[in-house]
């Protein structure tokens, strides 16, 4: 058994509609999703519903997942790369109770992966759907708070403002200091916020075989990157886009290809770097290690 599969699966609650949302709402959201897929990177407004979770807990992503989930789909939920944070566990349980779907921590087995702040290290494949939870969908909002204006700028592809932000980074820090939610250009047309994933994950957005859907609950916006769509990270010619690098590999699995988190190991400043993607890390360590970690956590 994978580490996060719950002991004895949760029973589906027969008193709520499949995946919680009513069918009309799901149809409305699916229409918004179709529109979003047709116009890659373009933010589509949708009638976001009240969810039994506060904003900031992924209500946008949950509504998207609820609208595309089928009874035979296998669901994986991650938060910062981990399957077993409170947020991930809650969302996973929510869909077990409301939809009775099978869940997994195994990236390769999942049909739908709802995520907050990471893209799995294991390459995705055709047929998979990655659902991002988005807190702030408008990449230009901080520099141009007027929504009427940002909408016009998207419409006319007036994106000089995005480079103002990168210019400011270089002027103040000597390099592009933005490390999360690093803006991208989708299909050579729309500038898009990739949600607060580390820029390390930005290259995975590009030409991904999986469908990538983005849901912002509070801001009532949905957008999408269809499979095999070009996604480029904004940069200057003389300050090209670069991803984070670490001096050594993961302390647990030795990977030099994954995004590492720093963890403290004692009270005396001891620390180590380990994979942020827990499923990737444990699967690399083999079954023995996996059960040890499972017992400890």
């Amino acid at each position: 058994m994978r580490m996060c599969d719950p002991p004895g699966s949760l029973e589906r609650d027969p008193n709520v509609n499949f995946a919680y949302l009513d069918e009309r709402t799901k149809r409305m959201i699916r229409r918004a999703l179709l529109k979003a897929v047709c116009i890659p990177g373009h933010q589509v407004a949708f009638g976001s519903r009240e969810m039994p979770l506060p904003y900031g807990w992924g209500t946008g992503g949950i509504q998207v997942t609820a609208s595309i989930l089928g009874p035979r789909d296998v669901l994986k939920v991650i938060d910062q790369g981990s399957d077993d944070t409170v947020n991930a566990v809650n969302i996973r349980r929510f869909f077990q109770r409301t939809a009775g779907v099978a869940v997994t921590t195994d990236t390769t087995r999942a049909d739908i992966i709802q995520t907050r702040h990471r893209i799995p290290e294991t390459p995705l494949r055709e047929g998979q759907i990655l659902v991002f939870q988005v807190p702030a969908p408008e990449p230009m909002q901080r520099l141009e708070p007027r929504q009427s204006e940002t909408r016009k700028m998207h419409g006319l592809a007036e994106y000089g403002l995005m480079h103002v932000k990168l210019y400011e980074d270089i002027a103040h820090y000597g390099h592009i200091a933005t490390t999360y939610d690093y803006p991208v250009l989708v299909n050579n047309r729309y500038v898009m916020s990739p949600s607060p994933i580390p820029k390390f994950d930005n290259p995975k957005l590009n030409m991904s075989p999986a469908l990538q859907l983005f849901g912002a609950g509070r801001e009532k916006r949905i957008y999408a990157v269809p499979p095999y769509t070009a996604v480029t990270s904004l940069a200057f010619d003389d300050h090209p886009f670069e991803v984070q690098r670490w001096e050594s590999g993961c302390a647990l699995c030795g990977s030099r290809a994954s995004f590492l988190d720093e963890v403290l190991t004692d009270d005396h400043g001891g620390r180590m770097f380990v994979c942020s993607d827990s499923d990737y890390c444990t699967s690399r360590q083999g079954a023995d290690v996996r059960s040890v970690i499972s017992d400890g956590g």
Binding site: G160, H163, A171, H172, A235, F236
Partner: peptide
């Protein structure tokens, strides 16, 4: 003006909007 953006970026925003992508030249 963009009051909270540096003077330099205020000056060259138009050039960036026109597609200039070389920081050194903008500077």
């Amino acid at each position: 003006l963009r009051m909270h953006v540096s003077a330099g970026a205020n000056v060259v925003e138009r050039q960036m909007a026109l597609g200039e992508r070389h920081y050194g030249r903008l500077r």
